[in-house]
Design a protein around this nucleic acid. Sequence first.
DNA 1: CGCGATTTGTGCACGCCTTCACAAGCGCCT
DNA 2: AGGCGCTTGTGAAGGCGTGCACAAATCGCG
Lengths: 248, 248
Amino acid sequence: MSQQRHGSTPGAADGVPAFPDLPEATIARLPEYLRALHHLAETGAETVSSEGLAAAAGVNSAKLRKDLSHLGSYGTRGVGYDVALLVDQIEYILGLDKNRAVCLVGVGNLGHALAGYAGFASRGFRVVALFDADPKKVGEQINGLTVQHTDDLERVAAEESIAIGVIATPPGTAQAVADALVAAGVTSILNFAPGVLSVPSNVDVRKVDLAIELQILSFHEHRKASLTALPGGRSAQPASGDQEVVGS
Amino acid sequence: MSQQRHGSTPGAADGVPAFPDLPEATIARLPEYLRALHHLAETGAETVSSEGLAAAAGVNSAKLRKDLSHLGSYGTRGVGYDVALLVDQIEYILGLDKNRAVCLVGVGNLGHALAGYAGFASRGFRVVALFDADPKKVGEQINGLTVQHTDDLERVAAEESIAIGVIATPPGTAQAVADALVAAGVTSILNFAPGVLSVPSNVDVRKVDLAIELQILSFHEHRKASLTALPGGRSAQPASGDQEVVGS
DNA sequence: CGCGATTTGTGCACGCCTTCACAAGCGCCT
DNA sequence: AGGCGCTTGTGAAGGCGTGCACAAATCGCG
């Protein structure tokens, strides 16, 4: 990473750089920019304009520029952004240069898929431990890893100093698993189980509920249907622009 | 608020009710309220206060009341909300009373898991068709359904008038699949493939990128680590409140 | 019947995020 | 060297969402 001048992180005093406090909305978009940049790099592009990168990431260019400006000034006016440089910067900010260890709890249908998900490894995450409460699953080999019993979760996770845990258990056991993860020193949890987790305030939780996504789509289906059925409603065919992404 | 009867949907003139236009943020929370309400109903509760429901859904009570007020006036002051009534209302708004048909494209690791995901069926969604481009997978039986070839996607989806499609293919083929879905009349897409989909403006797309979620957590890990390492940073143990959910 | 306890519904202010519009800066061409 | 076109970075405005604080409404009880 550090490329001499341009490279050093803004506000770096000594070895440990001060951390720019980015808006949460910006953080959520950085991974998307990063993916687009990787794609551009593969096609051999050296630089990108904000317009080009914005299009590749599916946002508008003003938003992209403002987002990137929060990281520092890594563009060249009249030219654009250096792809390689920007990749390094974003990966540094996101902490992806650390090759983070992740453990996964719950090797059911979904957990099984997550354990083998290529997208994790390709973005700097290593799944290093699998757990399940079902004795029949303990010992099973998945993707080169042996499933261990959740009773050992706390010990193993602590030993390997795992910082990120993924919960893919049934809703009933999710809270207990979260408690064990926290006890083991995990400070970030990605939760696929429906329901609310209660954790200490120093632990970050992100939730992904597949059914909720469908329900939101269902709402919009319902809305669209009621519009076309209504007297004033136009008959569903509002031109064909590009891209309507609903919600956040 | 007019209130009148309490039962029928607000603004209903004839058979087709006018559709309240809810804030997007509210819509995204309704499924969570619904889940909490179902849970309460199972425990035999007749009514809930906004405080109680808010706690169960992991939000603050003012927000919950404002959200629900957008649906109409379905609470009773001094008492709370009628659980059964509220369930019906939210399910109606979300269009879950329609038992919507969903098709799933891409029966890889993730797609396989989604096809068997119990959370879909239990919330009013029926997976009615599976597709994959790999001839080796075509014909395979999953959860009582036969995997069909993506060449038949457009025909089958149109015949069964499927409105919602789920994409769980590798990123390279996602756009082509989306085009086929749109051509078949699908107007809502849930996309698990990384990358930006381009669709007509009357089609809603929601994206779930599992790797992005981890990257956001990674950022917060990085931030927390740099804080504790910094001279001014407190030594990581900021009391133990409840619930810190990061991001939207 | 009236009163107090309780809980909803909402007006208001604040902060975050988005978007526009433009000045500042950079490279290239003449 | 100078000017021109292009692109970034950002000030300002507007919109959306959140949370507070309180009035309005309902129930139960004396």
